[in-house]
Each structure stands twice: as structure tokens, then as C-alpha cells.
Design a protein around this nucleic acid. Structure first.
Length: 771
RNA sequence: GCCGAGGUGGUGAAAUUGGUAAACACGAUGGAUUCAAAAUCCAUUGCUCGCAAGGGCUUGUGGGUUCAAGUCCCACCCUCGGCACCA
């Protein structure tokens, strides 16, 4: 008898699997495909903590089962190395980001391999490799050609500490998501992607997706569609009009004043001489306020009268035009019609500045829109909260934007044959803070010739944001070495049709960043014929976070990080895998508890010990085994790994009690255990004289007839309270059950001096006697 | 404020969607084994009254529907996540 020694067998099997290429994904397979994807990590300096692999373990279980069920499975892994986190880490530790990323990948990969994942490493990708980002740049160029990538000078979010512009998606509660600094609005030159052109499709196609409600809602809210009308307000004694958007055209009669954002372009024009200095002062103040101050809901409303009036188109009344910072330039037209009787904010404002509030009868919304359209002073309109994606960063560590700026020809695309446009190697890559990227200082790189007119020109020096590479990476795994195309058409069809990535797992924090950007790029790629589906990720599960034992987030700062290497050293990878899946619901967050590992380790020891029990061989099938096959198969499919494991524990507890075990049952059990605990299953499989890997076995099917119990516990209730339970054979008639129930001694006692009103029977379950 | 998820033993959690609440596991208590410990095994373990037989109570709170409610309806409280002066 040998002791269960996870460290020994785990290393053995990890080496064997790699050597035998057991998990290599084939192209051109006749089998149906299954594409399982994890959100690939950004290889941080800290390495993996025990929370990271949770999602990877789940996809590993699914992919191993699917493969045994006869699917050709693609389960790849790679690295998302560009962007602020990598660069800030490099700056802090004074290493070049390129070598930092390289080192960190090595560290990550070693950690992942110890857990025993079934990745096909021959398809590994790295977003910072030129032969990968060549295609990121290529997609950008296609967008540029279609007018979807454009240059803009609008004010954008600026992080003074990271010294770069940021997209709306990069903020958290008005602060920089990376460093927590307060964000400023800064007008600057930038590249923007027109994601708003896809807003409607991004919203509409959410219906096609098998995603959790939570994530769908987050995206819906982020896109933020509102239906209503644009209304044109004529300025009194002038030709100009000011456009407003409203979701409530039916309240137009109640509009008693108008408010413009202080940055609104018409303010200067319409302000009367008397009000000029007041208005200027207010604008000045508004500019100085941070966004956080401006959007503080607690603060009192402020504002200034411009002296000008607008005409309410429905009743031709003169209404005063004010400016106030509660109207945001970034939504709608930066101007509103104020209806204090129907809007809390307008009401507050009207009260403070003693503006008229009129109660009115509501019009029919549709009628009003039709009226506006007929009279040509308004029209049906929709508005989205979604903003175009600010796509340039004034930083070094990103994909160079492949544009050449020519004085004569303007922005010119770098010719496709010159891609990849490599990020130059430099010594100094610190952000400049001037609004220019550090690349601007590299003369030999910046200075070039215009591809059109061949005159002297300069390269665009901004780089792409962190999220660029991850927008399409799932396509590259399909065809990672392709030099001619982003992805081969036939391979794309095989792996992406009909529903794209069949299963996608990652953190909920990506709901309104990566997941929205990737859907946008995918739809664009569909439009230009690169992909054949409208959505990239068909089914999505979000992984619940594992907190530290103290309930806080695992972080170096709190000194509460648990390294999977240490856990594996003590308990083994199989035990770690089981524990992380057994802790609770997959999408639920739970605190780590090392003591909990005792349970899964005991379970594995039990599984190990059973091999030494006396064995028999019979042709009889086992009910509990088949029930377990059913439950485990369905639970894996539904991401309910915790109950799958508890069912397997029930089965092993039963096997342990038996004097001798049926070898065939034990082997079948090992097959369904294998996706969860691959090393021990493989070892036991081999030692029971099987030469081929357990992962080449067929996934067992359960016998539906067999899983039905022969007897059941009939519950006898009186007035809904359980008074007795008797074991009866399954399928007995309701009459028979009632008869039996009434004849029980206990029940008779309860029924003394009582009158039976009625009896309710539920087949194969209970009898309830109402008295 | 709005949207979403959730609230079940000492702890992590189950509950076929209206039908035995607490499966499985941790911990705890007692016992076996051992010179001793670890490991392992057996028993008990929601709370409560009772010597016992046997009762009573219990899924955040309060109502309701139903023969029957953790599950459905109404109101409220709390926790977590997202958004937030979005017109």
C-alpha cells in the first residue's frame, strides 16, 4: 500500500501530458467544436494569488469533460501585456516593461502549470509581440479607413498622475481606475473610436447572448439608451436656435426656463452685456471645479442668468435662459428645457432662483412628437450615455498608432505592408506630462516620409490603450501563426460558427470595458468580412472573487495574499482545485479558508484508499453511481461545481463503507472525477493497469431507468406538519398511499376526535391530511 | 436616488423551482486506535422544553395567498456589486 503523495504524482502527470501532447487542439477535425476561453491575464509582478485560478479551474473542468464527450476543444491561454499596469510596474521597479513582462509571464506560466491546466501552449499569444500587434494595428487602420477612428480635440479625462488621457470606461467614481487620482477635464488632441455608431447594435444584440442578467444589465445601463425628442428653441430676437434633448416631450407646456451647461458654445453669443461679467465669473468657477465637486449630489444648485430668452415652441412664451453646472456638456446637447413641475432638479433650481413653476396637463408623448415634427421645431430622437472611445494614450507601453501626420495630406495610414509598426526600443520611457507621448522624443522614429506625397512627415506618437489587444485575441488563438491574415477564413468558420466562443469566463469588472469593446470590434470585423458571426462570446459566466481570510481583498498591502504554490506544496494541486470549486457558488464571492482544504484532501485520500479494497467484477450497474454520473455531468454544464463535488463525496462515502468494490464502478467514477482532480485520477487509472490516458476515455452516460429509486419516504402530514414518514415502494397509487397513511398508528393517534376535511396527495411524495 | 444580486446552523453552504429545511464539508464534543501525538475510524451536533416517550419553534422583519411557503404576492430593514445632477 502506498500513501497518497500528490506532489510526486502531479509533477509526473504534468510532464507526461506535455510530452504526449494529450491536449493539443487539432485543426480540420470532423468532430463538433467547443471553444472555452478564459479572460487572459495581465502578467503582473506579484504573480498569481489563490483567487486568480478559480475561473481557470472551472474552464479546465469543462474543457476536459467536453473533450471526453467527443468535442474538439480549444482551450488556450495567453498574455495581455500592454498598458498602464505593466508600464507603471516597470517604472516603479526600474526595469524596462519589455523585460518585466517577459519575466512575469515566465513566473505566471510556471504557477499555472503547477495547477495542471490542459492548455494547448502551442497556441500561446502575447499582445506585446509585434506579430500579434501587427493585427491590432491592422484593425485600427480598417477603422480609420471607414471613418470610425478619428482625431478630436474635445476635452477628455486626464489623469495627472498617470499623465495620460483616459476613456470614460477607465474611470471609477470619477477617479483614475489605476491610481485613484482625481481626473481633470483637459482639451487635447486625441484619437477616438466611434463606438457610438454601434450603440444600437450593441444594445439590441444583447438579446442573443446567454449571459448572466447582472452583466447584461451593466452593459445596458452603460449604453444608456433614452428615447424622446430633440426640440428646437428659438432665441428671442435672434435667428439662432438652441437644441435640447428631452425624454419627456409631453411636458413641454411646463417648460418655464432653459438651462445651458457653462461650456455650451452659445453662451458667449447670447449673453447680454449686463450679464457678461456674472456669466464669465460663473464659467470660470465651473472650470476650476473638479468633476467630483461638480457632480456632488449633496451640493446646492448654482447658476447665473444670461439675460437672454428662448421661445417655447408650444405656447410662444418667452422663457429665460440660465447657465448652471448641473447641466453636463457631455450628455445630449449640453442644454435642457427645464420643467420644474416634473423634474426634481429643475424644481430645486426654480425654487432657489424664484423661477416660475406651472402645473400642467400632460400631453400624449407620441402626439407631441408628431406635432413637433409637423411644425418643424423638433423631431423624434434617441440618446445614449455611451461615449466614443478615447483611444490614444500619451504613454510608451502600447501599440503605436499606425498613422503618419503630413502637413499637406493630413493623417495618412501607414501602408499595411509596413505593419507591424514596431514600438521602438528606448532607454527613457517615462511619461512626459506635456500631452505628448515619450515616443515624440525619438527623432529617428518620429521623422519619416508621407506615404502619399513622399514629403517629410512625422509619425503619430500616441499609443493604444491597454484594452486594444484584448478586443480580438480570441480570434488569434484560432490561427496564431498566420502571417497573411488575422485569421484564416475556414478556421474562423469552424471555431466561431454558429455561436462564437461557446463559453467565456472572467471577472465582472470587465462588464463595461473589455466586454463592450470586444463586442464593438467584433461587429466591425463582421462588417468588413473578417468574422462570420455578430457576437464573439455566446455564454458568459463571471467568477466570484475570493477574498482573503480576513475578508479583505487579497493584496500585498494587507499582507494577506495566499500563493497557490504554497497551497500546492502542502495539499497538492488536485486538492486546491477541488477546494476552489467546492467553496460555494461559482459566481459568488467567498473568503479563503485554508482549513477548508482539509475536507477536499480527506476526500482525495479516501478515493486513493479505495483502490486497495477487495475488488469484484459484476455486470450489475449501480444506482448511486449512475445518479452521480447524471448529477456531475449536468452540474458541470451548469457551472454548479460545488454540488457536483458533494455528490462525488456521497458516492465515495458509500464505496468506503462497502466490504468490496466493483472495479468497473470505481473506474467509471475515476473518469468523472478526472476533470476536477486530473492527477490522482490519471495515477489511479494507470495503476489499475490502463496504459492510455484517462482523458482519452469516453465520458460515461447514465442509464435513466436505473437512476429512479425503487422505494421512497412517504411523508405523512396533518395540516401541513410532518407527523410520520414511511418507506413505500415507488409508484404506488394515491389511494393506496392515503390508505397506508391513515392506517399508521401514529397518525391514528393524531386523528382521534378530529374530523377529516380533505386529503391531499402528491405522487411519490406526500399525503397531507387536513382536519 | 436608480438598476442588479443576496440575507438559511458555530462556519462555507445545499434544497429537483410550491411538497421532509439544513445535503456535502469545516469546526466542536464524546469514543476507538496509540506509550503519546498526528493520521484514520465510529457516534452526536439548528434552537428549545423534557429523565424519557414525545412536543414546540426555526430560512432578515411584519403581513398575505395556499392543504402546504426558504421558494409566490405586498410593505419594510440590512449587506454586496454597478450607475449616478443622463435631461
Amino acid at each position: 500500500m502506498q500513501e497518497y503523495n500528490p506532489q510526486k504524482i502531479e509533477e509526473k502527470w504534468q510532464k507526461r501530458w506535455a510530452k504526449d501532447k494529450i491536449f493539443k487542439t487539432k485543426d480540420g477535425s470532423k468532430n463538433p467544436k467547443f471553444y472555452v476561453l478564459d479572460m487572459f491575464p495581465y502578467p503582473s509582478g506579484a504573480g498569481l494569488h489563490v483567487g486568480h485560478p478559480k475561473g481557470y479551474i472551472a474552464t479546465d473542468i469543462v474543457s476536459r469533460m467536453k473533450r471526453m464527450q467527443g468535442f474538439e476543444v480549444l482551450h488556450p491561454m495567453g498574455w495581455d501585456g500592454f498598458g498602464l499596469p505593466a508600464e507603471n510596474y516597470a517604472l516603479k521597479n526600474k526595469i524596462h516593461p519589455k523585460s518585466a513582462v517577459k519575466e512575469n509571464i515566465k513566473k505566471f506560466k510556471a504557477q499555472l502549470n503547477k495547477i495542471g491546466f490542459d492548455y494547448d501552449w502551442s497556441r500561446e499569444i502575447n499582445t506585446t509581440e509585434p506579430n500579434y500587434y501587427k493585427w491590432t494595428q491592422w484593425i485600427f487602420l480598417q477603422m480609420f479607413k471607414k471613418g470610425l477612428a478619428y482625431e478630436s480635440y474635445e476635452p477628455i479625462n486626464w489623469c495627472p498622475s498617470c499623465k495620460t488621457g483616459l476613456a470614460n470606461e477607465d474611470l471609477e467614481h470619477g477617479k483614475c481606475e489605476r491610481c485613484g487620482s482625481d481626473i481633470e477635464q483637459k482639451p487635447m488632441r486625441q484619437w477616438v473610436l466611434k463606438i457610438t455608431d454601434y450603440a444600437e447594435r450593441l444594445l439590441e444584440d444583447l438579446k442573443l447572448l446567454d449571459w448572466e442578467e447582472q452583466i447584461l444589465e451593466m452593459q445596458k445601463n452603460w449604453i444608456g439608451k433614452s428615447c424622446g425628442a430633440d426640440v428646437d428653441f428659438k432665441i428671442d430676437k435672434r435667428d439662432e436656435i438652441i437644441k435640447v434633448f428631452t425624454t419627456r416631450p409631453d411636458t413641454l407646456f411646463g417648460a418655464t426656463f432653459m438651462v445651458l451647461s457653462p461650456e455650451h458654445s452659445s453662451v458667449e453669443e447670447i449673453t447680454t452685456n449686463v450679464q457678461k461679467s456674472e456669466v464669465k465669473k460663473y464659467q470660470e468657477q465651473a472650470r476650476k471645479k473638479s468633476d467630483l465637486e461638480r457632480t456632488d449630489l449633496e451640493k446646492e444648485k448654482t447658476g447665473v442668468f444670461t439675460g437672454a430668452y428662448a421661445i417655447n415652441p408650444v405656447n410662444n412664451e418667452k422663457i429665460p435662459i440660465w447657465i448652471a453646472d448641473y447641466v453636463l456638456m457631455s450628455y445630449g446637447y449640453g442644454a435642457i428645457m427645464a420643467v420644474p413641475a416634473h423634474d426634481e432638479r429643475d424644481f430645486e433650481f426654480a425654487k432657489k432662483f424664484k423661477l416660475p413653476i406651472v402645473q400642467i396637463d400632460l400631453e400624449d408623448k407620441e402626439k407631441m412628437i408628431k406635432w413637433l415634427e409637423k411644425n418643424k421645431n423638433g423631431r423624434r430622437a434617441v440618446n445614449y450615455k455611451l461615449k466614443d472611445w478615447v483611444f490614444s494614450r500619451q504613454r510608451y507601453w502600447g501599440e503605436p498608432i499606425p498613422i503618419i501626420k503630413c502637413e499637406k495630406c493630413g493623417n495618412v495610414a501607414v501602408p499595411e505592408k509596413e505593419l507591424p509598426l514596431k514600438l521602438p526600443e528606448v532607454k527613457h520611457y517615462e511619461p512626459t506630462g506635456t500631452g505628448e507621448s515619450p515616443l515624440a522624443n525619438i527623432k529617428e522614429w518620429v521623422n519619416t516620409t508621407c506615404p502619399k506625397c513622399k514629403k517629410r512627415a512625422k509619425r503619430e506618437t500616441n499609443t493604444m490603450p491597454q484594452w486594444a489587444g484584448s478586443c480580438w485575441y480570441y480570434l488569434r488563438y484560432i490561427d496564431p501563426e498566420n502571417k497573411k491574415e488575422l485569421v484564416d477564413k475556414n478556421k474562423e468558420k469552424y471555431w466561431m460558427k454558429p455561436k462564437g466562443v461557446d463559453l467565456y469566463v472572467g471577472g465582472a469588472e470587465h462588464a463595461t470595458r473589455h466586454l463592450i469593446y470586444a463586442r464593438f470590434w467584433h461587429k466591425f470585423l463582421q462588417d468588413i468580412g473578417v468574422v462570420s458571426t455578430s457576437e464573439p462570446f455566446h455564454r458568459l459566466f463571471h467568477v466570484g472573487l475570493i477574498a482573503a481570510e480576513d475578508g479583505r481583498k487579497m493584496s500585498k498591502r494587507w499582507n494577506n495574499v495566499i500563493n497557490p504554490d504554497d497551497v500546492i506544496q502542502e495539499y497538492g494541486a488536485d486538492s486546491l482545485r477541488l477546494y476552489e470549486m467546492f467553496m460555494g457558488g461559482f459566481s459568488e464571492g467567498t473568503a479563503w479558508n485554508t482549513k477548508g482544504l482539509v475536507g477536499t484532501t480527506r476526500f482525495l485520500k479516501k478515493v486513493w484508499q479505495i483502490q486497495y479494497k477487495p475488488k469484484k467484477q459484476s455486470s450489475k450497474s449501480d444506482r448511486l453511481l449512475h445518479q452521480t454520473i447524471k448529477k456531475v455531468t449536468e452540474d458541470i454544464e451548469n457551472f454548479k461545481f460545488n454540488t457536483a463535488i458533494s455528490q462525488m463525496m456521497i458516492l465515495t462515502n458509500e464505496m468506503e463503507k462497502q466490504k468490496e468494490i466493483d472495479i468497473n464502478h470505481y473506474l467509471l467514477f475515476l473518469i468523472i472525477l478526472a476533470p476536477f482532480a486530473p492527477h490522482i485520477s490519471e495515477e489511479l487509472w494507470e495503476s489499475l493497469k490502463n496504459k492510455k490516458s484517462i482523458f482519452l476515455e469516453k465520458w460515461p452516460e447514465y442509464n435513466p431507468k436505473l437512476i429512479k429509486e425503487e422505494t421512497f419516504n412517504l411523508i405523512i402530514q396533518i395540516n401541513g406538519k410532518v407527523r410520520d414518514k414511511i418507506e413505500v415502494e415507488a409508484g404506488i397509487s394515491e389511494e393506496k398511499a392515503e390508505e397506508l397513511a391513515l392506517s399508521q398508528e401514529k397518525i391514528k393517534k393524531w386523528l382521534e376526535n378530529k374530523k377529516i376535511k380533505k386529503i391531499i396527495s402528491v405522487e411519490n411524495k406526500l399525503v397531507n391530511i387536513v382536519v
